[in-house]
Design a binder for these strands. Structure first.
Lengths: 274, 274
DNA sequence: CGAAGCGTTGAGTCCGCTCAACTAGCGTGG
DNA sequence: CCACGCTAGTTGAGCGGACTCAACGCTTCG
């Protein structure tokens, strides 16, 4: 047990007891002091192959953030990218009227701040959903060809591509007509991310509130509630507070694919009544 | 008049007669032969400042694509990034069931293929909306630190950041409850992109069909039609086929901000009746 | 214990989707 | 030349789902 798994006393779902996955296998989550090795950062981001190319004594500064606290504010000057080492964040954009829109969530290995590269400002606020720690990467160094290690340049590209990929998925997700489908897709994709972190893809704990999910999906928070209830009644999953246990992954995948069918909810209700 | 403005005989809205904008001011749109200079590519992408750093005799191969033809197919191996030099494209993702989802549109200066960097495959199909031309950038060279000019490395970062920024906007756009607001936001953001290309932000010609827009916005194509009619009746704009003339930009900006108001459409109808 | 916030559930309204009919523009071919 | 088919776009009628409003458990924290 390391310092970063007792972030808030919340048990969460334990990582797989058998760390047999060779892909991102429980990278050591941050050094005890206020710095961490470049190697660890590469492991978090899934660049295991590049660990050998960097010096063992390369360190990066880190920063801790308490739950509910902001790591960065929208419009704030962008000096560092952040690599999440522990905990999780939500990315929030707020418009002139004060309307908040959740644009995404960041877990371990995710790089924060890439979207602000051009403007040199953060395009959204970054709020910790639980106690968290990040490693700092200086933008200046990272973006100057000569002053950046190949491994970190690679990290930058990798992170950007991953982020773009994820945004595509989000767009696809939001195009779904039915609210149930949106929630189903969200849970499946969240499960996949959990799996990449060495945890179970079907049992996990949501770190964000229903309101956050609702904002992210573009629906009312009551609708998220109803959808979860419905999906549970249909036998796809068990929901206890923020604990999610997907019982029928194939079935959920199947129903989630009906992006614009006549009435995916009807099928749900039929299944629920049976 | 150059070779690339008679791509299809379509007049389009003429670029601003006075090219006083110092930002992306009508960069020479591609050499007549099947290659173009790196300098031009830098100009298209808005990196005017970097033009001086590259050799005048640096050339890139190009490729022409006819309207309706695909520049790349989903899942196809990714060997090059493409920089749009003339024309426009739509980015389409199609799922297992054959349902098509438009993820975005690419105009001059946009870089295509960045989202596939990790998987080495195109994540979506790229279809020309009109006759178009692109410059080719070898992925291999671009992603290898030593084998890439600083200006092109910068281009890569710039393009990635721009794309991320745009996806955020799209997410914000799709979170809007009302269909009218979505359409209004789409038109405003499209106008901004037109302006960055040296054209008018309020008068332009849409290159994509109503169906494409509908898919992009996540609504039915009839709804796009109705929304356009409504916005026109309200006096915000004039619509003739695919020609858009926004008459009241401030008004449109104002109404578009009501992302979740009680009923933005009601206000519209009131305004329309008066 | 009260206050505050999260989450769930119910009732009613309204918006957007589906289906359908109709017009307009375009190209083909009898 | 015009009939014909095809596609894009517009408009209408009706229905269903999501939002709004509201009330009520539940947990957390001062």
């Amino acid at each position: 047990m390391n310092a970063f798994e007792l972030t808030r006393g919340s048990p969460a779902w334990a990582p797989l007891p058998t760390p047999r996955v060779s892909f991102a296998p429980r990278a050591t989550p941050l050094a005890p002091s206020a710095r961490c090795s470049v190697r660890d950062v590469l492991r978090w981001t899934g660049l295991e192959a590049w660990v050998g190319t960097v010096n063992d004594s390369d360190w990066l500064p880190t920063r801790r953030v308490q739950a509910e606290q902001a790591l960065a504010h929208q419009h704030q000057s962008l000096t560092h990218f952040y690599v999440v080492g522990a905990g999780s964040f939500k990315l929030v954009k707020v418009d002139d009227e004060g309307f908040e829109q959740v644009l995404g969530f960041a877990l371990r290995g995710d790089v924060i701040g890439l979207d602000g590269m051009n403007e040199q400002h953060h395009l959204c606020s970054v709020v910790a959903l639980e106690d968290a720690t990040v490693a700092l990467l200086g933008c200046e160094d990272l973006l100057t060809p000569g002053r950046c290690q190949p491994a970190l340049a690679r990290l930058l590209h990798h992170a950007a591509a991953t982020e773009l990929q994820r945004r595509s998925d989000t767009q696809f997700l939001m195009a779904a007509a039915s609210a149930e489908v949106r929630v189903a897709r969200f849970l499946l994709s969240f499960g996949q991310r959990q799996q990449q972190l060495g945890c179970s893809a079907s049992r996990f704990r949501l770190r964000m509130s229903r309101r956050d999910i609702a904002s992210y999906l573009g629906v009312a928070h009551e609708t998220v509630s109803r959808a979860l209830t419905l999906l549970a009644q249909a036998g796809y999953m068990a929901v206890t507070q923020r604990e999610i246990d997907i019982l029928d992954v194939p079935g959920l995948v199947l129903m989630q694919k009906q992006s614009r069918g006549p009435s995916p909810c009807a099928a749900l209700k039929r299944r629920g009544g049976a």
